[in-house]
Write a protein that binds this DNA or RNA. Sequence first.
RNA 1: GCGACGGUCGUCCAGUUUGGUCUAGGACAUCAGAUUGCCAAUCUGGUAACCCGGGUUCAAAUCCCGGCCGUCGCACCA
Length: 490
Amino acid sequence: MSEYDQVMKLALERGFYFPSCEIYSDALAGFWDYGPLGQRMKNKFIDLWRRELIRRDGMWEIDGSQVMSKKVFIASGHLGNFTDPIIKCTKCNSTFRADRYVSEKLGEYIPERASNDEIDAVIRKNSLTCPKCDGDFGRTTRFNMMFKVEVGPSADEAYLRPETCQTIFVDFSRIFKVMRGKLPIGIAQIGKSFRNEIAPRQSLLRLREFYQAEIEIFCNPDKLDEVPMYDEVKSTKLNIHEDVSSHEITAQEALGKGLLPNQLIAYYLALLSQFYSKTGIDMKRTRFRKLSETEKAFYATVAFDFEVETSLGWLELVACNYRSDYDLSGHMATSKENLEVVDPSTQAKVLPHVFELSMGIDRSLYAILEHSYYEDYKHDDRIVLRLKPYLAPITVGVLPLMNKDGIGIKGREVYAAIRKDFDVYSDESGSIGRRYRRLEEIGVPFAITIDKTTMVDETVTIRNRDTMEQERIKISEIKNVLEKAINPYE
RNA sequence: GCGACGGUCGUCCAGUUUGGUCUAGGACAUCAGAUUGCCAAUCUGGUAACCCGGGUUCAAAUCCCGGCCGUCGCACCA
């Protein structure tokens, strides 16, 4: 069984995540629900993101609407020119990218922006037919990955956002004013995005409705090498992928060698790398890969993907795109609002450029689970999810060794004393070994056991999930010990 | 979206070839009780499933058709 299958099984069995609407037969692919444990873990992941990126860098976080007006996507380029031309065989219903198929077949370049009529004309002129069944093609249509929604009784056309960042772009002007902004300014958002994938697959890895954590850095394009906090992170090690191999190099060296174009990008890639190193992902199995011209999204001028190696191959977790002024100039032209701001040092008006860190939360959580999954063959093949204590959905289990001589009651007292401060799980049933195994499997880093000695001297044992070692501490110390243990800087 | 293969308790599997004895069985997990008392112990009992819809038939988990889902390949992932 592959590691993907093992994680999938654990997720289903223990309720980290599972298919949405699963009791109905018309449930659709590409929609998944987080169960109690997955939701907790996601919240803690987001807490860490806020701590290591948002607060550290002094960014602002917003929360925007998921339904956005049509003009937003005219301006952003998601509607109009950037839909894929599709042809369908009338006989076998196979679907093809019209421009690519025609180009390949005829050996002549057909621009993606060719109109439907132009493509149809080429197909008719050359009598092109379906490569599978030789059937005739229907007319060229446009496939767009966005979900269209009809709003109100007049069914006004709107869309579910395909990336959260458009909210940030359209809100930029107000945020900059009311927060007394100065460039560079980071604006971030966590939320749902929606893409109508043709073939969603592999649970959390290709969803139709998914979480993004996006950071948009608005900057003066003339000052990309003047980043005040750059010195703090310049010796951070980054795995940079060149040609066919990756190697570890400091941000400073990468900048010096021209692998990274400027200080601003070096700074944020370093921050991102520091963040992920705290998630429990094995950083030796990660890389920053610069995308080629053909791989980049339409809005990006320079793009690096932060990728992680999993049992399914390399997986993109974060798209780091230099979007230049593509978005703001688009919204400026479409909305007729002036989105320029004044740079106080020069008193000149500038239309900010944008560098973004667009993180897939669901994929990140999957990668953390897979990299944390461990089968301990030295101890009964126990399954251990070696999550960082501050990401574990449950921090500590409280386990009375037996339920007599007042030990069970004492256990409930200990539980009650710490339940408001930590995510605590109380378990009184089954053998102690079985209870330890249950906790390890869902990544609970600590287990407190109440035994006969507790009744004499008010001490308990606290057991470490990974080492299986126990330490005896006073009940009054539990809170301090746990607080120290779940500190991300510990 | 196309093609191939598949879908049975929470999980894994038996049963489908050759329709009936399946009132659907097992293992693990789970719950209750007993026993034990620091690393998945034992015993007893319980909960729990044929993906959905239609068809064929005296009779469908089993055969046929459609849908949905899953895996893989192609395409797609702006």
